[in-house]
Amino acid sequence: MGLMDYFRSTRHKGSASVAKERLQILVAHDRSERHRPSYLPKLQREILEVIRKYVEVDMSSVSVNYEQEDSREILELNIILPEAAQTRA
């Protein structure tokens, strides 16, 4: 590593470091999208429809998150209920 550090320190900070940072963020995002099951958007829509039978919520109040760690998959649902409208049913 010492050699690499020495090399890096002699380099002027140019646009390449910006490119690298942007790419790292972008590629990480692309990769997480890639591993998502394709049914997620439909799932989100249908959950929203069910909730709407009881409470008035909009699309942005339901978030569906999918994460994969080694051997397990986590599907996280987050529904924000409006404060005053919890008793429609």
Binding site: M4, R11, H12, K13, G14, S15, A16, S17, A19, K20, L23
Partner: peptide, 12 residues
């Protein structure tokens, strides 16, 4: 250009 920090390096 890599040396001048203008281009992504092979390590990058």
């Amino acid at each position: 250009r890599v040396e001048r920090g203008e281009m992504l390096s092979v390590e990058d």
